[in-house]
Simulated scan of single mutants.
Amino acid sequence: MSVLSVFASGGLLSLLVFAALGAGAGALILGGRRGALIGAVLGAIVITVALLPSEVFRAQMGESVVAVFWLSIFLFPIVLYALVLREARKKARGKEAETALPEPGLRLIEQDDALFAEQLGKLLALNDKAPHFSRETFSLAWRDERGEVVGALRVGITMGLAEIRVLHVDEAMRGHGIGAALLTGAEEEARRRGCHIASLYTFSWQVPEFYLRQGWTEVHRTDLGHGATRLTFEKAL
Protein backbone atom coordinates (compact mmCIF):
# COMPACT_ATOMS: atom_id res chain seq x y z
CA MET A 1 0.00 0.00 0.00
CA SER A 2 1.47 3.39 -1.04
CA VAL A 3 1.70 6.45 1.22
CA LEU A 4 -1.07 8.20 -0.76
CA SER A 5 -3.31 5.20 -0.28
CA VAL A 6 -2.77 5.43 3.47
CA PHE A 7 -3.68 9.12 3.46
CA ALA A 8 -6.61 8.49 1.13
CA SER A 9 -8.09 6.01 3.58
CA GLY A 10 -7.90 8.70 6.25
CA GLY A 11 -10.32 10.96 4.42
CA LEU A 12 -11.20 14.05 6.43
CA LEU A 13 -8.64 13.18 9.10
CA SER A 14 -5.83 13.36 6.52
CA LEU A 15 -7.15 16.71 5.34
CA LEU A 16 -7.09 18.07 8.90
CA VAL A 17 -3.60 16.70 9.53
CA PHE A 18 -2.16 18.41 6.43
CA ALA A 19 -4.01 21.62 7.27
CA ALA A 20 -2.43 21.56 10.72
CA LEU A 21 1.02 20.90 9.24
CA GLY A 22 0.51 23.74 6.77
CA ALA A 23 -0.57 26.06 9.58
CA GLY A 24 2.60 25.29 11.52
CA ALA A 25 4.77 25.86 8.46
CA GLY A 26 2.98 29.08 7.60
CA ALA A 27 3.37 30.40 11.14
CA LEU A 28 7.12 29.67 11.03
CA ILE A 29 7.74 31.07 7.55
CA LEU A 30 5.27 33.96 7.30
CA GLY A 31 4.65 34.52 10.99
CA GLY A 32 1.48 35.37 12.87
CA ARG A 33 -2.10 34.19 12.55
CA ARG A 34 -2.31 35.27 8.94
CA GLY A 35 0.68 33.08 8.01
CA ALA A 36 -0.82 30.11 9.87
CA LEU A 37 -4.14 30.56 8.07
CA ILE A 38 -2.47 30.74 4.66
CA GLY A 39 -0.41 27.64 5.44
CA ALA A 40 -3.48 25.72 6.61
CA VAL A 41 -5.40 26.54 3.42
CA LEU A 42 -2.46 25.63 1.18
CA GLY A 43 -1.91 22.35 3.07
CA ALA A 44 -5.56 21.39 2.70
CA ILE A 45 -5.57 22.28 -1.01
CA VAL A 46 -2.37 20.31 -1.73
CA ILE A 47 -3.55 17.11 -0.05
CA THR A 48 -6.99 17.41 -1.63
CA VAL A 49 -5.54 17.78 -5.14
CA ALA A 50 -3.16 14.88 -4.51
CA LEU A 51 -5.80 12.51 -3.16
CA LEU A 52 -8.82 13.53 -5.22
CA PRO A 53 -8.21 10.86 -7.95
CA SER A 54 -8.50 8.16 -5.28
CA GLU A 55 -11.97 6.57 -5.05
CA VAL A 56 -11.26 5.64 -1.45
CA PHE A 57 -10.55 9.29 -0.57
CA ARG A 58 -13.66 10.50 -2.34
CA ALA A 59 -15.77 7.88 -0.57
CA GLN A 60 -14.23 8.76 2.81
CA MET A 61 -14.79 12.47 2.24
CA GLY A 62 -18.40 11.85 1.22
CA GLU A 63 -19.04 9.87 4.39
CA SER A 64 -17.27 12.54 6.45
CA VAL A 65 -19.37 15.32 4.93
CA VAL A 66 -22.56 13.41 5.72
CA ALA A 67 -21.36 12.76 9.28
CA VAL A 68 -20.42 16.42 9.80
CA PHE A 69 -23.80 17.50 8.44
CA TRP A 70 -25.76 15.33 10.88
CA LEU A 71 -23.47 16.31 13.72
CA SER A 72 -24.05 19.99 12.97
CA ILE A 73 -27.81 19.40 12.92
CA PHE A 74 -27.54 17.77 16.34
CA LEU A 75 -25.25 20.43 17.81
CA PHE A 76 -27.02 23.49 16.36
CA PRO A 77 -29.78 23.76 19.03
CA ILE A 78 -27.22 23.17 21.79
CA VAL A 79 -24.94 25.93 20.51
CA LEU A 80 -27.91 28.27 19.97
CA TYR A 81 -29.14 27.63 23.52
CA ALA A 82 -25.65 28.32 24.90
CA LEU A 83 -25.46 31.64 23.00
CA VAL A 84 -28.91 32.74 24.17
CA LEU A 85 -28.06 31.78 27.76
CA ARG A 86 -24.79 33.75 27.61
CA GLU A 87 -26.54 36.88 26.33
CA ALA A 88 -29.21 36.55 29.04
CA ARG A 89 -26.53 36.30 31.71
CA LYS A 90 -24.71 39.35 30.31
CA LYS A 91 -27.90 41.40 30.40
CA ALA A 92 -28.64 40.21 33.93
CA ARG A 93 -25.16 41.21 35.09
CA GLY A 94 -25.61 44.61 33.44
CA LYS A 95 -28.92 45.18 35.22
CA GLU A 96 -27.39 44.12 38.53
CA ALA A 97 -24.57 46.61 37.99
CA GLU A 98 -27.07 49.38 37.20
CA THR A 99 -29.29 48.67 40.21
CA ALA A 100 -26.51 47.91 42.69
CA LEU A 101 -26.40 50.54 45.41
CA PRO A 102 -23.06 51.92 46.64
CA GLU A 103 -22.06 50.98 50.13
CA PRO A 104 -23.19 53.52 52.73
CA GLY A 105 -20.64 55.77 54.36
CA LEU A 106 -18.22 58.58 53.64
CA ARG A 107 -16.68 58.81 50.18
CA LEU A 108 -14.04 61.14 48.74
CA ILE A 109 -15.09 62.63 45.37
CA GLU A 110 -12.37 64.42 43.42
CA GLN A 111 -14.36 65.48 40.33
CA ASP A 112 -17.19 67.09 42.28
CA ASP A 113 -18.62 69.74 39.93
CA ALA A 114 -21.79 67.75 39.17
CA LEU A 115 -22.27 66.81 42.82
CA PHE A 116 -21.74 70.41 43.94
CA ALA A 117 -24.25 71.75 41.40
CA GLU A 118 -26.83 69.17 42.54
CA GLN A 119 -26.41 69.91 46.25
CA LEU A 120 -26.31 73.67 45.66
CA GLY A 121 -29.59 73.45 43.77
CA LYS A 122 -31.17 71.59 46.69
CA LEU A 123 -29.84 74.14 49.20
CA LEU A 124 -31.06 77.12 47.19
CA ALA A 125 -34.47 75.51 46.77
CA LEU A 126 -34.63 75.06 50.54
CA ASN A 127 -33.58 78.67 51.16
CA ASP A 128 -36.20 79.95 48.72
CA LYS A 129 -38.88 78.46 50.98
CA ALA A 130 -37.66 80.42 54.01
CA PRO A 131 -39.67 83.54 54.95
CA HIS A 132 -38.26 86.82 53.58
CA PHE A 133 -35.39 85.02 51.83
CA SER A 134 -34.22 86.66 48.61
CA ARG A 135 -31.19 86.38 46.37
CA GLU A 136 -30.03 87.97 43.14
CA THR A 137 -26.85 88.76 41.28
CA PHE A 138 -25.48 91.42 38.96
CA SER A 139 -22.19 92.21 37.26
CA LEU A 140 -20.43 95.36 36.11
CA ALA A 141 -17.81 95.57 33.36
CA TRP A 142 -15.41 98.23 32.10
CA ARG A 143 -14.73 98.28 28.36
CA ASP A 144 -11.86 99.99 26.56
CA GLU A 145 -12.00 101.97 23.31
CA ARG A 146 -12.18 98.76 21.27
CA GLY A 147 -15.11 97.46 23.29
CA GLU A 148 -13.11 94.76 25.04
CA VAL A 149 -13.73 94.04 28.73
CA VAL A 150 -10.61 94.95 30.73
CA GLY A 151 -12.18 94.82 34.19
CA ALA A 152 -15.29 93.37 35.79
CA LEU A 153 -16.87 92.35 39.06
CA ARG A 154 -19.79 90.19 40.19
CA VAL A 155 -22.07 90.83 43.14
CA GLY A 156 -24.37 88.40 44.91
CA ILE A 157 -27.14 89.83 47.05
CA THR A 158 -28.65 87.76 49.85
CA MET A 159 -31.37 89.42 51.95
CA GLY A 160 -29.81 92.87 51.77
CA LEU A 161 -26.18 91.71 52.03
CA ALA A 162 -24.11 92.50 48.93
CA GLU A 163 -21.13 90.19 48.52
CA ILE A 164 -18.39 91.22 46.09
CA ARG A 165 -17.43 87.81 44.77
CA VAL A 166 -15.12 88.65 41.88
CA LEU A 167 -13.21 91.85 41.11
CA HIS A 168 -10.51 91.75 38.46
CA VAL A 169 -8.76 94.30 36.27
CA ASP A 170 -6.32 93.36 33.51
CA GLU A 171 -2.77 93.93 34.66
CA ALA A 172 -1.97 96.36 31.83
CA MET A 173 -4.95 98.55 32.80
CA ARG A 174 -4.30 98.79 36.53
CA GLY A 175 -3.52 102.14 38.09
CA HIS A 176 -6.10 104.00 35.97
CA GLY A 177 -8.96 104.02 38.49
CA ILE A 178 -10.90 101.19 36.82
CA GLY A 179 -11.02 99.04 39.97
CA ALA A 180 -12.23 101.95 42.06
CA ALA A 181 -14.90 102.82 39.49
CA LEU A 182 -16.13 99.22 39.43
CA LEU A 183 -16.28 98.98 43.21
CA THR A 184 -18.04 102.34 43.57
CA GLY A 185 -20.52 101.38 40.86
CA ALA A 186 -21.22 98.10 42.63
CA GLU A 187 -21.85 99.88 45.93
CA GLU A 188 -24.26 102.32 44.28
CA GLU A 189 -26.16 99.56 42.46
CA ALA A 190 -26.37 97.45 45.62
CA ARG A 191 -27.66 100.46 47.56
CA ARG A 192 -30.24 101.09 44.85
CA ARG A 193 -31.41 97.48 45.24
CA GLY A 194 -31.97 97.95 48.95
CA CYS A 195 -28.72 96.58 50.38
CA HIS A 196 -27.56 98.02 53.69
CA ILE A 197 -24.13 96.35 53.97
CA ALA A 198 -21.49 94.92 51.64
CA SER A 199 -18.74 92.39 52.27
CA LEU A 200 -15.82 90.79 50.47
CA TYR A 201 -12.66 88.88 51.20
CA THR A 202 -9.25 89.08 49.59
CA PHE A 203 -5.74 87.77 50.14
CA SER A 204 -2.61 89.50 51.32
CA TRP A 205 -1.03 89.29 47.85
CA GLN A 206 -4.01 90.99 46.20
CA VAL A 207 -3.34 94.52 47.49
CA PRO A 208 -5.84 94.69 50.39
CA GLU A 209 -4.80 98.33 50.92
CA PHE A 210 -6.93 99.15 47.89
CA TYR A 211 -10.13 98.40 49.83
CA LEU A 212 -8.98 100.46 52.80
CA ARG A 213 -8.53 103.44 50.47
CA GLN A 214 -12.10 102.89 49.20
CA GLY A 215 -13.51 103.21 52.70
CA TRP A 216 -13.87 99.53 53.55
CA THR A 217 -13.14 98.21 57.05
CA GLU A 218 -11.19 95.08 57.82
CA VAL A 219 -13.31 92.92 60.15
CA HIS A 220 -11.42 89.64 60.20
CA ARG A 221 -8.01 88.24 59.35
CA THR A 222 -7.12 84.55 58.91
CA ASP A 223 -3.48 83.46 58.95
CA LEU A 224 -2.94 80.84 56.24
CA GLY A 225 0.72 80.22 57.02
CA HIS A 226 3.80 80.87 54.90
CA GLY A 227 3.17 84.62 55.19
CA ALA A 228 -0.23 84.42 53.51
CA THR A 229 -3.38 85.95 55.00
CA ARG A 230 -7.05 86.10 54.06
CA LEU A 231 -8.72 89.38 54.96
CA THR A 232 -12.46 90.04 55.23
CA PHE A 233 -13.80 93.57 54.64
CA GLU A 234 -17.19 95.17 55.18
CA LYS A 235 -18.73 98.52 54.32
CA ALA A 236 -22.02 100.06 55.37
CA LEU A 237 -24.12 101.23 52.46
Rank of each mutant, 00 (worst) to 15 (best):
R93E: 14
R93P: 00
G94N: 09
E96N: 07
A97R: 15
E98H: 05
T99L: 15
T99M: 12
A100W: 01
A100T: 14
A100S: 14
L101Q: 14
E103W: 05
P104F: 04
P104A: 08
P104T: 07
G105C: 04
G105Q: 03
L108R: 12
I109N: 04
I109M: 09
Q111I: 10
D112Y: 06
D113E: 14
D113Q: 11
L115A: 13
F116Y: 10
F116P: 01
F116R: 13
A117C: 07
A117T: 13
A117V: 12
Q119C: 08
L120A: 13
L120Y: 05
G121N: 13
L123N: 06
L123E: 10
L123W: 06
L123I: 09
A125Y: 02
A125W: 01
L126C: 00
L126W: 11
L126F: 11
D128R: 15
K129P: 01
K129F: 00
K129W: 00
A130Y: 03
P131A: 04
P131S: 01
H132L: 11
F133G: 01
F133H: 14
F133V: 01
F133T: 01
F133A: 09
F133K: 08
S134L: 00
S134C: 01
S134H: 08
R135F: 00
E136K: 07
E136P: 00
E136D: 11
T137E: 10
F138I: 04
F138V: 05
S139D: 08
S139W: 03
L140S: 04
L140M: 09
L140N: 06
A141Q: 12
A141T: 09
W142P: 00
R143P: 05
R143D: 08
D144W: 06
D144K: 09
E145M: 08
G147T: 07
G147Q: 07
E148T: 13
E148V: 10
V149P: 02
V149S: 02
V150E: 05
V150R: 14
V150I: 15
G151V: 02
A152S: 13
A152K: 08
L153W: 01
L153G: 03
R154M: 11
V155Q: 03
G156A: 07
I157W: 04
I157M: 10
I157L: 13
T158R: 09
T158G: 03
T158C: 05
M159L: 00
M159Q: 13
G160E: 03
L161H: 08
A162W: 02
E163L: 09
I164T: 01
R165E: 15
R165M: 12
R165C: 11
V166W: 07
V166F: 07
V166C: 01
L167C: 12
L167I: 15
H168L: 11
H168K: 14
D170L: 12
D170G: 11
D170M: 10
E171N: 08
E171K: 13
A172R: 14
A172I: 08
M173P: 00
M173H: 15
R174Q: 15
R174I: 02
R174C: 05
R174Y: 03
G175A: 06
G175N: 04
G175M: 04
H176I: 00
H176S: 03
G177H: 12
G177Y: 08
G177S: 06
I178K: 04
I178L: 06
G179K: 04
G179Q: 05
A180R: 15
